[in-house]
Design a binder for these strands. Structure first.
Lengths: 222, 222
DNA sequence: ATTGTTTTTTAAGGAATATGTAATGAATAA
DNA sequence: TTATTCATTACATATTCCTTAAAAAACAAT
């Protein structure tokens, strides 16, 4: 899952980024409205955290311009305590939720989780395929009875596969959702990580879940 | 489907080429305006991706010279963030869409898919003939209930046949749309691949779909 | 700050598979 | 029949992928 933070206060942005990376999200930061709008238009984020008070272009303008381009990425607004009007205006223009500064990180995280499963009928916090399960909150992964230890990147990659089971994922798609914009196309990190994952989730089990489509990419399916 | 990329930044061009090849498009690259114009005039591309800032001949000139020759291949412009005027001028001169650099690959891909079905009334993402179906997004191919596994080239070839069902396709036409400019005319690869395809989509079924027209080419029809 | 540990990335060789070549025989038209 | 054209198979080559090891970077503990 890849998240954009649009926030001019460097300290706040860095604080959120660090916390989210600990939760294995891939995070980009934009430190003014112009950069935020641009990044938001050009990249398929799974979520945007948007401060309303920004240099160059303000948050509400970014919001409306993204929505007018039919970009329906979940957007969570950050507002100062007293700007009730902006908050309401923001929700009217298609924001999905808001949080008043200052806030507890756990609060932010909980809201992000809710928004990321928006649209799914269920409110489950686990992903499952065959006897493999992934808990989105505790980050525990099990296959059968066995608990599997994963590093951050391994977890993100697995989560992306499990959210898209049955769909063919090209390396380009994987790079865009599991890595951030520093990703270098001409490297084989993705192959290496698929290999790591396979060792942990497939190797000791007869039914393989992670399959290669030569020349195209990978697919997770039973 | 065969696509020309006219782009002088080698890394950008290579990035796009790789992503498109993962989607089984046949891709040629021109690294300056002169080469781009030349290739665009000489080959029946299904789509041209054209950077505006180019050495030798600039993108807008290429665009207008292709259009003045009644070449109406869909053209997607790549523009720098700030060159609004060029973008507008480009659309006026008959470009079909534009994308601002840098961009996410998924965004480019979505736009290409839209342009490639331009003119078709429908917005379907599957091709069908008799009980054979091909899904343009997931790349899944079925005949009846049976799912058919194809390699990249087999898939591209089948897609071309299915987009042109009922039409006689000569080997030259097939080479021009399914292979890139490295294709060697005096080879029988096409015959070999038609044979591969037949084994997979026709062999076990009484009603054949892929027919030979001796001395001419092939046709897909019921 | 320094050291040790873990994760992430890079790089390279070998294995697997797709693609392209070439040769042979079968089918078709003149 | 004879000359073409096509289908089919086996093989060669090229590409892609897997795997491993080691370098680099990030992180934690002292």
């Amino acid at each position: 899952m890849r998240i954009l933070i649009v926030e001019d206060e460097k300290k706040v942005a860095a604080f959120i980024k660090k916390g989210l990376e600990e939760e294995t999200y891939a995070v980009d930061i934009a430190s003014d409205g112009e950069e935020g709008l641009h990044l938001g238009e050009q990249n398929p984020y799974d979520m945007i955290i948007l401060d309303l008070m920004l240099p160059k272009i303000n948050g509400l303008d970014i919001l409306s311009r993204l929505r007018s381009q039919k970009i329906d990425t979940p957007i969570l607004l950050l507002t100062a305590k007293d700007s009730v009007d902006d908050k309401v205006e923001g929700l009217n223009q298609g924001a999905d939720d808001y949080l008043t500064k200052p806030f507890a990180f756990s609060e932010l995280l909980a809201r992000i989780r809710v928004l990321l499963r928006r649209g799914k009928a269920e409110t489950k916090t686990t992903l499952e395929i065959a006897d493999l399960t992934l808990d989105l909150v505790s980050h525990k992964v099990n296959r059968g009875n066995e608990e599997i230890e994963l590093t951050g990147k391994e977890y993100s990659l697995l989560e992306y596969f499990m959210r898209n089971q049955g769909k063919v994922l090209t390396r380009t798609m994987i790079a865009e959702h599991v890595w951030d914009y520093n990703f270098d196309t001409f490297t084989n990190v993705i192959d290496v990580y698929v290999n790591h994952l396979r060792k942990k989730i497939d190797k000791h089990f007869p039914a393989k879940l992670l399959h290669t489509l030569r020349g195209v990419g990978y697919v997770m399916k039973v």
